[in-house]
Structure formats: structure tokens, C-alpha cells
Nucleic acid binder design. Structure first.
Lengths: 349, 349
DNA sequence: TATTGGCACTCAATTCTACCGAGTGCCAAC
DNA sequence: GTTGGCACTCGGTAGAATTGAGTGCCAATA
């Protein structure tokens, strides 16, 4: 079964039909038994109409070419990353069970609240659908324009700068002054900031007043604090759902620890997802993503596109022997629903 | 070593000196070996000047009274929750190593940014100090007064309600209307909302206009959305640091899974911490906190008090055989620094 | 009377051995 | 090129034997 549908760049050169079938059988079986697969179980498998001996000799070739590996002499074979890659590249797309479809539909029909809440809950949904750990990344608002800026006084020397962006996100920054700012100063600064910044993006540099009065100083400080957003991968939001799945799905405490500690570092997660997207992949298997502690992991990503613009991504993290077809389907469906949710009805931000 | 200093309500009745010493020796040793402790290693332990045989007979008593348990005949003893409780109740307070003190000081000297960032990073700090999973809970802003309310228009039917509280927190809520709101309507509504809400808390009910015009409807909708904050334990923020420690510190995949899945549910974590604080405890051991999946866990909490008012709490989650003295010290020190950070200098919100 | 050394007993953990069997590689036959 | 046959490998398991840490009990002691 399975062929075509290049959802990931097929880096692997084609394999003759029989080898492909055998490889697929090995991968499939290993995925759901977690055991090395022997020649005979492959031979008995439907679409392979040859004897175990023949399968064995093919396996030798597949092993030599790097698709399979043997844990030790006299054990069956296990797919390598390259083997999984071939499998994934030639995977027919799967569909969700109708129960799952229902779950997704119900979820998106009933979900409400702020974007953050929706994304957060979506990560839980995706994790439940797949029993892998799910990641939902919300796009950075560095490209959104500013709708409103407001300076609110907490006390004489502490102001809060509240910025509303066109994508519905709100940022807050504290502005500390070395002088006591009067409430008139603050509201005047607020007014000037609005005039200055509304309609701009965070990348826009603006001309700030150079005067030395309190209002000008407030304005300068505010603008600089606002534009000081850290360089890359900031402003993105990451939501991780089902981190407990890590403990179910990986074996070996050490692996679990490593994976969890990666998940703790949100910046890392964002760049992982971003890297994979940049490579134009939808799946990164084992060594492909280049994150050493995740060598035994596969990562699935699906971009979320709203009105043609990238609006984030959803991802799944599982063992290399994960259920690719189902997981890809789930990620795909959820990312589409998410896109529709935020795009179709111009959203319920 | 150790006595007095009732930092937790001593539920346990006193034990005669020798029993106490023996119990303490068992607990201490078990904490750092994770093995059942036998009579001879206790006897050889400094402060117990009796023979193994005597220790054994005391142990029988301690076991009968519920302080110790035997995994099986002919194994050493292991402390029960009650045993740990006694130990903790009679624990002399510990201090951090000077390296740790430095780390804490440096951290609070250099940390900056919004409250959320500080709390987040504090959770990581605390986790690093102890190698347990740390929790930092920021107080709910339900009691803070409103400093400013602003309605910002995203499009004709979607407005964003941005509320700034006196504790420096900012909340956002979307307001969806069934009619097209003009920008004049929005700014007028904004003005009225300010007049209505500034200085009130979220618990304050206010009189809203009952007219049927757009402005009044906007105002009504905004107020209702704002006051609709979910009942309890909302508005709190939870930050969890070092969740990967779970995998290091507990054995048994199943335990790890359970603990992680508790940590995923932030509301649960908040109420766990709250429950423990309400009981007036600083440590909840095993069954004491009543969360069944955490039976093999101990939770340490330390309230953070700013200007006499509760401003949150820090917590640590480890196995029942955790290093109480060090962990209590770390939680205490961090909570105090946190309090000072936000209180002393009227903070750098 | 409280403490202690002595001793028989228990039982988890470890080690050893045998062996089973899944799976291989090779080869001669088809 | 494919296949069945066969000898070989080697991880895993199942018992059996052994070890040893630790106990409970008891009689001797101070």
C-alpha cells in the first residue's frame, strides 16, 4: 500500500517495488510491535509473495543501503532513520477515524475565548488525538501593526506601556523613570505615542522627540522599551500539550529526561519547529532535525496559514517509530481547522 | 541533630529521645540511599549509642506506631509518611551553600522584565537550586483595582477590551457585537467604561446603562465579559520550572507519567498549593495533600507576602524521600527574595 | 529490668546454567 | 532468480542454587 503524494521532499531515491514493499512491511510492523522484525513475519505479510529466504536476501541489500539495521546478529531488522524517511515519503495520506473527526469538529465548534486560550486548548486536543506531545506555535506579532498604545501610571516612577496589535495581541512593558512623572505628563506622552506609533510595526523605526522635558523622556523611553523586543523568535507563543505523553511513549528514563528538558526551553522548541518548516519538511526523523537530544524522536509539523500569511504551526513529537499516517493526518486536520477558525470568520479573537 | 522550630504544625506527638534519634537516622539514611535501612547501620550511626539488637526492638515499636514500615520480612525499614512528618516537624532549619546563596543573589540582582518573566525565571532558579520541580504561583488580581480600561476596535464587530490593574497586570478580553460599531461608539464606550470601572475591583458589581443604543450595548457587553472571569482560582498564574526533574527524581514510568499529567493541569496545581497553604502547612507529605496520583510525592510551599498581603507562593515537588532541609531552605530563601523584589522597591513591575 | 550477643530463619537479589527458539547466512537444488 | 534445508548465533527466560542483609527471639549479662 501507499505511494505518491509528496508531502515531504523525497530525498530518498526510489527502491524497486519488492524492496519497497518489504521495507514498508518492516516499518509498519516495527511501529506497532516495537520489536525487530524477522524475515518470516514479513514473508507471511500479504503483499509479499515470496519466501522468507528471498526476503532475507533483500533485507541484506536494504541493510547495506542503510534502510535497515540489525540490533545484533540473529535478531530481526529495525528501520533506520533513512528507512523511516523512505516510508514517510511514500506514505499515502491517512484519515481520522470518525470519532476523531467528531472530536475535532466539536472542539472547534465550541471553543471560545482569547487566541491564547484557543491555542493552548488546541495543543491538548492534538495531543489527545494522537497520544503524542503536541506543540502549537502562534506567530510572532512583529509584523502586525500597532492599533493602540497607552501609558498607564502605576506610581510616580513606574508606568505601564500597553500596546495593542492588529492581530489582537496585547503586549505590556514597564517603563521606569528616574523622575516623578505627573499624570498630565503621562497622558500627554500616551497621546504622543499614539500619534507616533499607530499603524507602524515593531520593525518600523520612528522619529522620537529629542527634547529633555518629562513628556519627551517618557516617550523616548517607551519607544525604546517597545522596540527592544529581543531579536529573533520572540513574540511567538508556544503551547505544549500532553507533555506527560513523553513518559508513555519513550522508554528509558534518560530519553524522557532529555526530551522533557528540551520541551522546557520554549525558544528551542520554536526554533526546532521553524527549522523544520524552513527546510520545507513536514516530518523530521531522528538525526534530520539536528537536535542531538532528540535523536530518537520524530517531529511532525504543519504550518497554519491564515489569509496566505503564516500564522503559526502545529507540531507533534513522538518516537521515530511513531504512527506517521495517523499523526500526519491529525496534525493536518487540526492545522486546517485552526486556520479556518482564525481566518474564515475573521476569527473570534 | 535537629529539634524545635515549628515551621509546620506538629501533628505528631513527641517520641522519647532514643526513638526520635533512631527515626531520624532511618529517615536521613533512607533519603540518601533510597534503600531500606537496617538496624546495624543505624546502630553504627554516631548519636545512637546502643547495639543493633536494641535498635531492632525500638524499630518494632516505631513500626507498630506507624512511623516505619518494612517492605518485607528481612528487609530494613523505610519511613512512612508519618515518619517523614515527624522528621520534618523536628527539623532544624537548613541554610543554602554559599554558592547557592550567590546564585540567588545574582539572580535577583540581575533579573528584570515584567512580573511574569521574573516569576517564570524564578521557577527555573528554584528548580536548579534543588533539582526538584518548582512551582511559582502569582496571586490572582481579583482584588487589585482597575487602573484603566480601554476598548480597541479590531474591526466593526470585534473589539478588544484591555484592562490594566493596580498590580501591574493586564487582561485582555474580546468583545463581539452583533452590530457594526462605529469608531465613535467605541471611543465613547471606552470613556464610559473608564468612568464606571476605574478604582473598582473585579468583585465590585457596577450599574450599567440599560439603554439600547450601540454605546450602551458595548458597555454592557464589556462589563459582563470582564466580570465573567471564571469563579475560583482564575487570574492566578502558574509557572513550572524543571519539569524534566520529574524524570530524574521519581522511579517508575507510571509515577513519572502521573506526576507530569498533574503538572499539566495548572488549575490543579494552583489548588494543590492553595490547599496546602490553607492547612497552614509548609510541607505536605504523601497522603497529606489528598491528591491520589501524588501519593509518592512531597510538596513544599512557601507563601510570598508583599506588604502583608499574600502575593503568591513558591513550591517544590519531589519524592517523599526528598531533601527536606535543603529544599525548605531554598523555598524559604527564594520566597523571601521574591517578596523583597516585589515589595521593597515597590517593585520593577 | 533494660541491654546485648548469639542464632536460626526469611526472603529479595544475584548468579549460574541450561536451553529454547527466533532469526540469520549460506548453499545446493529447483 | 527463488527456494527449502541446515548449521549456527545469541538474546531471553526459566530454574536452581547461592548469597547475604536483615530480622525475631531468647538466654545471658550488667
Amino acid at each position: 500500500m501507499a505511494r505518491r503524494d509528496a508531502k515531504t521532499k523525497p530525498t530518498s531515491r526510489p527502491l524497486d517495488a519488492r524492496k519497497a514493499t518489504i521495507l514498508e512491511a518492516v516499518v509498519t510492523e516495527h511501529i506497532d510491535t516495537a520489536q525487530p522484525v524477522g524475515s518470516s513475519s514479513v514473508a507471511h505479510n500479504a503483499d509479499v509473495a515470496v519466501s522468507p529466504a528471498t526476503v532475507r536476501s533483500e533485507m541484506v541489500t536494504l541493510e547495506r543501503e542503510g534502510y535497515l539495521a540489525q540490533p545484533h546478529t540473529s535478531a530481526g531488522r529495525v528501520p533506520t532513520d533513512k528507512g523511516y524517511r523512505y516510508f514517510v515519503d511514500h506514505l499515502s495520506s491517512g484519515v481520522l477515524t470518525s470519532a476523531q473527526q467528531h472530536q475535532v469538529k466539536d472542539f472547534f465548534a465550541s471553543v471560545r475565548g482569547e487566541v491564547e486560550d484557543v491555542l493552548e486548548q488546541t495543543s491538548t486536543l492534538l495531543s489527545q488525538l494522537t497520544s503524542y506531545t503536541a506543540v502549537v506555535v502562534g506567530a510572532s506579532h512583529t509584523h502586525a501593526t500597532i492599533l493602540s498604545v497607552q501609558l498607564v501610571s502605576l506610581d510616580a516612577r513606574h508606568q505601564l506601556l500597553v500596546t495593542v496589535f492588529s492581530d489582537g495581541s496585547v503586549a505590556k512593558h514597564s517603563v521606569v523613570t528616574s523622575f516623578d512623572a505627573g499624570s498630565l505628563d503621562v497622558s500627554e506622552a500616551s497621546r504622543q505615542l499614539n500619534a507616533l506609533l499607530i499603524g507602524t510595526t515593531l520593525e518600523h523605526r520612528v522619529q522620537v522627540p529629542s527634547r529633555q522635558d518629562h513628556v519627551a523622556m517618557l516617550v523616548r523611553e517607551s519607544v525604546s522599551v517597545l522596540h527592544a523586543e529581543r531579536p529573533v523568535t520572540d513574540g511567538e507563543q508556544v503551547f505544549i500539550g500532553g507533555s506527560s505523553k513523553v513518559a508513555e511513549v519513550f522508554d528509558g528514563v534518560e530519553t524522557v529526561r532529555k526530551v522533557l528538558s528540551i520541551l522546557e526551553q520554549e525558544l528551542l522548541v520554536v526554533s526546532l519547529v521553524q527549522d523544520i518548516l524552513d527546510q520545507g519538511l513536514s516530518v523530521a526523523i531522528g538525526s534530520e532535525h539536528g537536535y542531538e537530544p532528540l535523536l530518537s524522536c520524530a517531529v511532525i509539523v504543519a504550518p497554519v496559514t491564515v489569509d496566505g500569511a503564516p500564522a503559526g504551526a502545529v507540531g507533534l513529537l513522538g518516537p521515530t517509530r511513531m504512527k506517521y499516517r495517523e499523526a500526519l493526518a491529525a496534525a493536518g486536520v487540526v492545522s486546517q481547522h485552526l486556520a479556518r477558525h482564525f481566518g474564515g470568520e475573521e476569527e473570534s479573537v
